[in-house]
Write a protein that binds this DNA or RNA. Structure first.
Lengths: 377, 377
DNA sequence: TTGAAAGCGCTAACAA
DNA sequence: TTGTTAGCGCTTTCAA
């Protein structure tokens, strides 16, 4: 089976000509006598000839492949990002590898022309520690996190915020504003926020929630943050957190979170703490689906007794009833845009440092329009 | 930024030695004077030297990358297969590309050492039409479909069944048997089957259902197949099918199905047709989640009034209540096994033509134990 | 212990 | 229109 594959030289010999003529014939480029061309093509066919893409890549210094560096395959949002990348890349003749397992130090061994990082934190970390050697164009999906970068990266971070890759960003602060506006219009001003991370861990979504609530004069917004994390002092000893995987956060080794499970627990905590709120925004859609389930399991009806809202816009929303109201970040669009920017970069075109992508509120059935709101209008 | 990257020759010149010495130094192979080695390493560092993986691949005739050829990113099952592949491949230093967009004729341009096909139908089709030229090792995930291959491939199929790639298979007939056994033990002998494909389209899951039911003496099993497909004569004119994407099936251009949506509709059809059954097995988990939702929307309680069972074992089960009882095919295991077999093949080891992977019933809450069953015991 | 040299399979400039 | 030649960046053999 594994018969050695034919090369252009083999064909040339059989055709009694030279490799360059064969090359031209096969590539439809340059001059080559018509009848000679036909003969060459026929011989190639006979020999089951197939070009060696590695040799072509070496010669052209281009692999036509790019890498999506992503730690979290389980996350539906990332898969949708990836899907958008695949489609867009295919249009331009590129393939996209998905990987979050390679060590940064091994990225250099990857046969790609460039890298898309899953978020600006990872991008900054990579650039700071490895990127300088690897001369590979890098683009990053981003969520307005640049400001808090130093905090999350810790010592490793430093002034990482400055040396970033081009960003394809959806601004979390604006997203949060849209969410809170929408809730307010429906009479929800006392709003809680559920997150799987520590409240002061520098996560941009929590930061955005707090910032926007303060702007609205809700001084006690912090009390309405439910941080389902072992690192939260109120939960450090809580046995219910034992079932979740240990949270690793050395450097930026993010770990797959059980968002749904933590969302369920968040609903319980909301009730236990008797939080004074009429709506809860979940860290992301999966977390929010967990919130809904958690409330339902406690006999609390959504949205009649409590409203729930998500962020992301993942397909899995459809599985849960009531349908989750969320702000969709259009992950496929964002993924496609990442590819566009990266390929432009690879092809030497000028790209802007930040490209913004859109978001939109997707109305579901998980938020109640309260009577008081009707009055206000 | 895009300063030309240094090569081993650049280093050699600076160090006043030759490329081969530099190579040995960098690769820790062969002889090289200790102090010279240190100097070389230092210069490499200064030059921000990074080896060119394409050149290495050309020389070694190995890319350390493999391709998972898969048409359907939306399908959670495939993602879990992929996840298993990523992990296993990483262990052996390989990367896995995911793609189902490349034309078969373009696979030859891919920088990979081998291909994993999503199922035996696609594998057979590829092998028959293109594989002969591409000298690339191929392995396929499989579902006991080989028997029906000719039927599904149509003219293109021919004796495709014979020239297959090594298969990593979970036998659908045994899976179906396990499902029906389990249902029977709980008092369900009149069982329906819901599928998004035509009942006689040669799909292996439908075929397995029918075969197993006939074995059990249920002559009218066919009447209990709900085929949510435009191609089904009973539904050809049904407006409710208009919302689903056109079913394309030229050659094997499978299209993403809206399993969940079709499952919902299947529940309606079950009720409309007043099918005489106490349980429904869904084509896969997503379809079955749709069944549950469909019944619930019609005010039918699951499992009190109708039992539902799935096949696959996808993570998304957790979103739906009651928890779906299913037969898990352990997609991650299967994916990992595909990688193992393919890498063995690539490395020239002997591999068996068929490797079987396991399955197991995952008990949920969607199947009722009927009183009559208790009596039987 | 070193380095020249011959490839890996292909492209492309240039001379014929 | 053709064929020679010089690479692309690296590995590896072999003579020195």
């Amino acid at each position: 089976m594994e018969k050695k594959t034919a090369t252009r030289l083999d064909i040339a010999r059989r055709a009694g000509t030279s490799v360059s003529v064969v090359s031209r014939a096969l590539n439809n480029s340059g001059y080559v006598a018509k009848e000679k061309k036909e003969r060459i093509l026929k011989i190639a066919e006979e020999l089951n000839y197939a070009p060696n893409p590695v040799a072509i890549s070496l010669q052209k210094r281009r692999t036509k492949q790019i890498l999506f560096y992503c730690k979290n395959v389980d996350n539906a949002f990332n898969i949708q990002l990836y899907k958008g990348m695949l489609d867009e890349a295919a249009k331009r003749g590129y393939l996209v590898l998905f990987n979050g397992k390679v060590e940064f130090s091994d990225i250099r061994n990857t046969l790609v022309d460039g890298i898309i990082m899953q978020d600006e934190v990872i991008a900054a970390y990579y650039l700071k520690n490895y990127g300088k050697n690897y001369h590979l164009p890098v683009v990053s999906a981003a969520y307005g996190e640049a400001a808090g970068l130093g905090k999350r990266l810790g010592k490793a971070g430093g002034q990482a915020g400055r040396q970033t890759a081009p960003l394809v960003e959806v601004d979390t602060y604006r997203v949060m504003e849209a969410a809170l506006d929408w809730l307010e219009k429906r009479g929800h001003v006392r709003v809680a926020f559920g997150t799987p991370y520590p409240a002061d861990g520098g996560n941009v979504r929590t930061a955005a929630f707090l910032a926007r609530m303060y702007e609205r004069g809700m001084k006690n917004a912090k009390d309405r943050v439910i941080a389902v994390s072992r690192k939260d002092p109120r939960l450090a000893e809580d046995p219910r957190l034992l079932s979740f995987r240990e949270e690793v956060e050395e450097d930026i080794n993010l770990v797959n979170e059980d968002y749904f499970g933590k969302g369920k627990l968040a609903a319980r905590l909301f009730l236990e703490r008797k939080l004074d709120a009429t709506a809860v925004v979940g860290f992301n859609d999966e977390f929010s689906l967990g919130l809904i389930r958690g409330f339902q399991e406690q006999g609390i009806r959504v949205p009649e007794e409590i409203s729930v809202m998500g962020i992301d816009g993942i397909d899995a929303r459809k599985y849960v009833s009531p349908l989750l109201t969320t702000i969709s970040l259009f992950p496929q669009e964002q993924g496609a845009m990442c590819v566009r920017v990266l390929l432009d970069l690879i092809e030497g075109k000028k790209v802007r440092h930040i490209t913004h992508t859109g978001f939109r509120l997707m109305e579901g059935e998980s938020v109640l329009s309260r009577a008081s709101a009707s009055r206000k209008r």
